[in-house]
Simulated scan of single mutants.
Amino acid sequence: MKEFFALAPAEQIARMHQLARGALSRWPGRFAEPELIKYRENAVYSVRDDRGARFALRIHRFAYHSDAALLSELQWMAALREAGLAVPGVIPARDGALMVKVRVPEVPEPLQVDMLGWLGGRPVGSVEAGIAGAPDEVAALYRQVGRLAAELHAHAASWQRPAGFVRHAWTAEGILGDRPLWGDFRALPELAPHRALIDRACAQMERELLEFGRSADRFGLIHADFVPENLLWGDGRVMLIDFDDAGYGWHMFELATALYFHFGRPSFGIVRDALAAGYRSVRPLPNEQWRHLGLFLLLRSLTYLGWVQTRSETETARAMTPHFVSTTVDLAGAYLAER
């Protein structure tokens, strides 16, 4: 796929469109022309069938997840939906498969494709702009976000995983180890002037995480991407999309992700307190865990540095790197100052 990704973005999109058109024949019904919604990690299309029903067709990035890992993601989503959580439904293909492999001449490798039910609503905000609204509106919104996170964790704690279920793990090794899941933040040139600070913080975090542990009251399946773009507001409720990063991890890592892009904004305290209150209305969140929020915010920040380091050629990475570096340095300094 190296040759494919060397193509200009417009040419990649044109070729992906052909794959999307070919993939639709694998699902029952007749569909209108697919409309590209997003092309970043995955290519996501809006499609409508001849009855007017709307769906999301996802073409997954080559070799990002194994077939078993993607199937596991979809199985968990289907179980959450069946349990009544506000997540997309999974639409089986004609043969009943939750995921299919599709190949067309325009793309050199077969790619994984799935179809999800469309959730109406709008994102509650964006990474760049944050969220808008009066303080009481923001608080009410994030109380719902906290409840949704707690419901998801409660479901994961009791759900019997299917045979062959496999997902990656957001552990100390997966974030701070030699081969982090999202790339090596240490290799980011812009971080070089701050390496001594970051190395001290990483050493302290490894010790603290070992003590914190991975017992079932604090560690399990998580969504791992509760960012504003993945939280939709519609029909008076918050809905959750994009389980691409879902895996095993600390519940506090989940909550830190929900808070991360509010850090440094005037709304941070409101969002933080509302998120915790909403979570605690569904399942326990002891102060013994919550007091480690600074640790998990810093862990989350390091993953974003790894993300931009492995995508340094993209416009998004170039635009976000200064923000991620400055936020990481601020979080590391605050984290060490508290120890």
Rank of each mutant, 00 (worst) to 15 (best):
75 Q>K: 12
119 L>W: 12
150 A>N: 08
25 S>W: 15
307 W>Q: 02
272 R>N: 11
307 W>N: 04
280 R>L: 15
156 A>R: 03
242 D>H: 11
110 P>I: 07
61 R>P: 01
329 V>W: 00
282 V>C: 10
83 A>K: 05
317 A>S: 09
231 L>N: 04
300 R>Q: 08
271 V>R: 06
282 V>P: 11
137 E>C: 07
60 H>R: 07
265 R>I: 12
215 S>T: 15
259 L>V: 11
117 G>L: 12
93 A>F: 04
212 F>W: 02
336 L>T: 01
22 G>Y: 01
73 E>V: 07
255 L>E: 00
37 I>M: 14
4 F>L: 10
302 L>A: 08
290 W>R: 04
122 R>M: 15
232 L>S: 06
320 M>Y: 15
208 E>T: 06
59 I>K: 03
87 V>W: 01
72 S>I: 06
229 E>P: 15
313 E>D: 10
67 D>K: 14
144 Q>F: 04
39 Y>D: 12
182 W>P: 02
282 V>Y: 08
176 L>W: 05
306 G>V: 01
316 T>V: 13
39 Y>G: 08
111 L>M: 11
335 Y>V: 02
245 D>F: 00
27 W>E: 05
302 L>D: 04
297 L>W: 07
37 I>V: 15
70 L>F: 00
222 I>M: 07
146 G>E: 05
91 I>L: 07
61 R>I: 07
247 G>H: 01
224 A>R: 06
312 S>W: 08
280 R>I: 15
316 T>L: 12
275 L>V: 11
215 S>C: 09
89 G>T: 03
317 A>E: 04
315 E>T: 05
136 D>L: 04
207 R>I: 07
109 E>N: 10
13 I>D: 13
127 V>I: 14
113 V>E: 08
187 A>K: 15
207 R>N: 06
62 F>E: 01
95 D>M: 02
156 A>M: 05
240 L>H: 05
300 R>H: 05
80 L>E: 03
248 Y>I: 04
176 L>N: 05
24 L>A: 14
146 G>H: 01
